[in-house]
Design a protein around this nucleic acid. Sequence first.
DNA 1: ACTGATACTTGACTAAGTCAACTAAATGGT
DNA 2: ACCATTTAGTTGACTTAGTCAAGTATCAGT
Lengths: 311, 311
Amino acid sequence: MTIHHQPGRERIDAVRGFNRFYTRQIGLLDEGLLKSAFSLTEARVLYELAHRDGLTATDLACDLGLDPGYLSRLLKKFEERGLVERVATQADARRSSIALTPAGRAAFAPLNQGSHDQVAALLDRLSAPEQDRLVKAMQTVQRLLGESAEPRVPYMLRSLQVGDIGWIIHRQGLLYAQEYGWDETYEALVAEILGAFVKSYDPKWERSWIAEREGEVVGSVFLVRQSDAVAKLRLLYVEPSARGLGIGRRLVEECIGFARAKGYKKLTLWTNDVLTSARRIYEAAGFKLANQERHHAFGKDLVGQNWNLEL
Amino acid sequence: MTIHHQPGRERIDAVRGFNRFYTRQIGLLDEGLLKSAFSLTEARVLYELAHRDGLTATDLACDLGLDPGYLSRLLKKFEERGLVERVATQADARRSSIALTPAGRAAFAPLNQGSHDQVAALLDRLSAPEQDRLVKAMQTVQRLLGESAEPRVPYMLRSLQVGDIGWIIHRQGLLYAQEYGWDETYEALVAEILGAFVKSYDPKWERSWIAEREGEVVGSVFLVRQSDAVAKLRLLYVEPSARGLGIGRRLVEECIGFARAKGYKKLTLWTNDVLTSARRIYEAAGFKLANQERHHAFGKDLVGQNWNLEL
DNA sequence: ACTGATACTTGACTAAGTCAACTAAATGGT
DNA sequence: ACCATTTAGTTGACTTAGTCAAGTATCAGT
């Protein structure tokens, strides 16, 4: 199912502007290669061969968008120069799998180094955090435009590191402001909760789980001790970009498992009724609505809810 | 002064991967143009002419990275076909400024529309928030790789927005961990201070300043009320990437000015002796060291200092 | 065994781009 | 005012990179 959105002029223009910009950028980078004995296309072919095994001519033509005839001649020339070897695949005699010879690797090495150095020089003009942002932005573009049927790396859970709580405060603050119009007092509440969590952290009775995917925090939850018998689940959140992967449910399950293992009798949590997807997770996990009441907070009229789970 | 960072293999590889990816991406988009009467380069030239006035041949050759000879012939062909007009500039008889004729605009229109539609189709495969992220990421790449070096916009000061305090907590936590090895309890302290600041914020007596450059937070400071007579300066910080621009000094000056204007008698602050560059700013602003004492915090043995400024 | 597809290969092209040599005008130093 | 240099653009003589269509050998399905 595809939803239609009418992309909007500005976005289209922005993307076209970027395409023009990057066309030029790639042109600049390719000029560097021009000095070598290989053309840009030859270099691209060598790169693919150097980094992937068992490629056939069709694979190459398809991946690089080349004309099969052109590629055929190109490979022939490489073979004559002793840079590649072709062996017919046993499964299909029409195809042959192409590999660089040691001589081919030797010819590719300076090319590769040149490209490497050029990019290194480009990056070197930026500060470390800028480099980081650049790489992240490029990965975002690539992920979004790449074969949308991505083999989406799943996520992993880890414990709290320095920088996490600030990040989580930042993201939750922005997210709830965007999605529900909450004001800065929500962000402040998150800051107070997490500041206190770390300050009075008791590893024996408390824990946090951070969901990370491709190096980015995409969700988190905290479990704090209220009394010997009662644990409280706090600040569950999942990034919009990572929703639908079961991360929310998993985080809640981890909490429940931990609470059971520690011998708590009850797990409780406080939420607001507008947070429907979170509520669905709590219901599915067996939480029961204990009570609710109207209140005014975060610049909105809300309905606060307490949910409990007997362990 | 440029600091060298040793870009790091992964970043370089990521950028090179993106270059290969986008080379292919542009190749795909250009195939669409191939059906038209114009080559890719011709289309690029037409685009520039359609969107900018008073271009000369040299401008075009330079901006698009074209060979002057090639461009000359190309423009001649356009002129013969009645698509462009050239008029010698009055300042310099060698140059002529090139413009599309109405016929040229008419020829460009379908080309432009085709490219527009193609990008629209590309975007349409994404949801609205994904489109947004794509555009943002592209703009980030463009901003960082574009003529970033020189015209560095200075910074501007603004007041607190949603997301700021989380971001500041995040950055301060990471920064002091990297630079001084402080542990997560420092980040937690910042979280508590800022949570409380927002919660009990009194706009009449308190204020915050956020330094922003190119859309990024690069520093901040907070002024809180301690009593009718005493204001406290808290959490001054400047991003390493933005140091040396006088942002720290400026932030402190803003605090002092505000405190004076509000009629405070004294401005105080607490810091640690390891933070030497901050101390230099305080000294230069007229603060005097009131007292100091050893303490153990943030996983380190430190010397805490109180500084005062009579207003 | 036959049909239609796939995986290349080859021949015949042409568009696209490069390079160096050239003219004409401007700029700068004395 | 003059001459050496530089800059803007042009032209001729090339190469090369890429395209297109027609071919062969092999495979997969019936």
